[in-house]
Design a protein around this nucleic acid. Structure first.
Lengths: 124, 124
DNA sequence: CGGTAGGTTCGATGTACGTCGAACCCCTAC
DNA sequence: GTAGGGGTTCGACGTACATCGAACCTACCG
């Protein structure tokens, strides 16, 4: 196996200093409806998305889960990213996840709202 | 193992004669959002639902799938039924599946429309 | 009556996936 | 420099699930 770059797209600016936020994983297209549903179907991932909307669409990874190991969380982040639901971006040195609400809404209009709404209502 | 009734809820009217359609599985509540997504996530089941809407919300089982065995299809029907997405009813002697659009819309407003819409658009 | 078509159940099999621990990387702070 | 926190990757393991064939049931038709 040839050595793979750690972050396929994300590029950390070595520029020291001021809080820099940059785009990441911009090339990843939103997946088809089946993959979207498969991504949102898992309780852990649905909770992650729920917390993301609660946080205004963006949050640090560690704030998006409880009760599971870091490696498991990273696994779920990857699935959400590959489905085009979230993207990874680096804010001020730490990695954040951002909900790609607009992109998903364009690929599947109303889907995210319906899912979030139902999940929210279900959690009282 | 004690003998179980073949159809838990459905009751075939032995009344000979005229086309009779009757309610079935009315007691099954629509499941939570995760179970709904899990049910719709499978390609085979999504296609079944797609064909159901194409058929006006109701169709004979055999018209809802291709390329899989009857037992596999029955398995998928069961999952859709247990999620509250479809119900089984007997029309004129043969079993039909009916989309519980209204019930699902009440449990998860907009979900079914979004999923169907995306699936339809994706299939051109 | 016997046969066929449409559906379901059961049991077995293979694979996909969620989970974890360990090792590693990047960045920041001491 | 040396820790240490935050995230990711890589196996490995266990379970859940989609698939099938066989047996069975019901309704219908010859």
């Amino acid at each position: 196996m040839t050595v793979k770059p750690l972050f396929e797209v994300t590029r950390m600016t070595p520029e020291h200093g001021q809080p820099v936020a940059q785009e990441a994983d911009v090339a990843v297209p939103v997946a088809g409806i089946q993959q979207l549903l498969a991504a949102l179907q898992d309780p852990v991932r649905l909770e992650m998305v729920r917390r993301l909307v609660g946080a205004g669409g963006e949050a640090q990874c560690k704030n998006l889960y409880d009760g599971i190991g870091k490696s498991t969380a990273a696994h779920h982040f990857k699935i959400l990213r590959e489905a085009g639901i979230t993207e990874r971006l680096t804010v001020d040195g730490t990695i954040h996840q951002r909900l790609r609400s607009d992109d998903v809404a364009q690929a599947a209009p109303g889907l995210l709202d319906a899912v979030i709404g139902a999940a929210q209502r279900q959690a009282e």
